[in-house]
């Protein structure tokens, strides 16, 4: 007995099992009829599609158990299309399965690697071609070509330059100036401190000349949330406390993480929550991050009131609002 491990033998392809339709003409005819019925159902689907398109009004709603109220036009079009397509597929596959040849065939594979002689000639041709160009020897050509190709890649980059202006300092500035009135959004009305009850939140924007044409890019930096607490609820440094007015505190509404609108305020906990990645900011502690991926508190706007009690910004934001960027000095 040898120590060779003998593998279990390949018994070869199992014998082909004939289908009924292969030998019985009646079964084959039955299969043909089944295929025709499937194609026929598809045609009915197309009829449903046409009828829905032309005759079912777009605003007709019908009640369907389980699905609830459905737009009949949309449902008819969709189901018609689904039926017309699906049953063409079913017909074709049933046809293939019952009536087309189902004997498995064996084809041979060939290794992709060419015969060694061909490979050698090929490699030689590449080498001698490269050699004849002198690329290897003439280093001046090689280097200058490399430099030229590298430099030419700059031109598409350069040509894209006019896609937009340079950012300059725009990431760092907003429309808020000292003395800018806070106005409601929507509405663009100035608000008095007394308009806000304790516990209330309001979204405000800086007052501008032409509020009808406020640019979205400005809203994206200027949006501010006002929240009114009882003054004793704050737990702020004296400097930050001085930026509030009578319990009203103002934060940038643009998340310091990735710029979503920080829109959810929980009255009980006095937390602001950003729905994008759930960064949570504690209003009483100057929007300190208490949860989530944001790394910085929301910038606080310094507010006060004018002689008539309307809220105004005392100072612009003292730091850039929104997500971080390379040039941001966050120290």
């Amino acid at each position: 007995m040898s120590n060779e491990i003998e593998a279990i033998k390949d018994p070869g392809l199992p014998a082909h099992v004939h289908r009924k339709a292969d030998s019985d003409p009646a079964a084959a005819n039955r299969a043909e009829r089944q295929v025709a019925i499937l194609f026929g159902i598809s045609a009915l689907g197309t009829v449903l599609l046409i009828v829905s398109y032309i005759f079912v009004p777009q605003d007709l709603f019908i009640f369907i158990p389980v699905m609830g109220n459905q737009n009949a036009h949309q449902l008819g079009l969709g189901l018609g299309m689904a039926i017309s397509l699906f049953f063409i597929g079913m017909g074709a596959i049933h046809w293939a399965k019952t009536l087309m040849p189902d004997t498995e065939v064996v084809a041979q594979r060939h290794e992709f690697r060419s015969p060694d002689s061909d490979r050698k000639e090929f490699v030689d041709a590449v080498k001698s071609g490269a050699g004849a160009s002198g690329l290897g020897r003439r280093s001046l050509i090689k280097k200058s070509l490399g430099a030229a190709l590298g430099l030419s890649a700059l031109s598409p980059l350069l040509l894209l330059r006019d896609l937009g202006p340079l950012p300059k300092k725009e990431f760092e500035t907003t429309s808020w100036k000292s003395g800018t009135y806070l106005v409601t959004d929507p509405g663009n009305r100035r608000i008095k401190a007394s308009d806000l009850e304790v516990g209330a939140v309001a979204q405000v924007l800086p007052e501008i000349e032409d509020p009808e044409h406020r640019a979205l890019s400005d809203i994206g930096k200027d949006a501010v949330l006002l929240i009114r607490l009882r003054p004793q609820e704050f737990n702020l440094t004296p400097a930050k406390l001085a930026m509030t007015h009578d319990g009203i505190i103002a934060f940038s509404k643009i998340c310091s993480h990735m710029g979503c609108a920080v829109a959810l305020y929980e009255q009980q906990t006095k937390h602001l929550l950003c729905p994008c990645h759930q960064s949570t900011f504690d209003v009483t502690r100057g929007a300190k991050v208490i949860f989530g991926p944001a790394a910085r508190p929301l910038p606080q706007l310094d507010i006060t009131v004018d002689g008539e009690g309307y809220l105004v910004a005392r100072e612009p934001f003292s730091e850039p609002v929104g997500p971080s960027f390379w040039e941001r000095n966050s120290q």
Binding site: L79, M90, I93
Partner: peptide, 18 residues
């Protein structure tokens, strides 16, 4: 089979969309 299967995929997507 493959051609038929295309129609089946399209039909299923149309059904979902309906």
């Amino acid at each position: 089979k493959a051609g038929g299967f295309f129609f089946i995929v399209f039909g299923v997507i149309a059904f979902l969309s309906a």
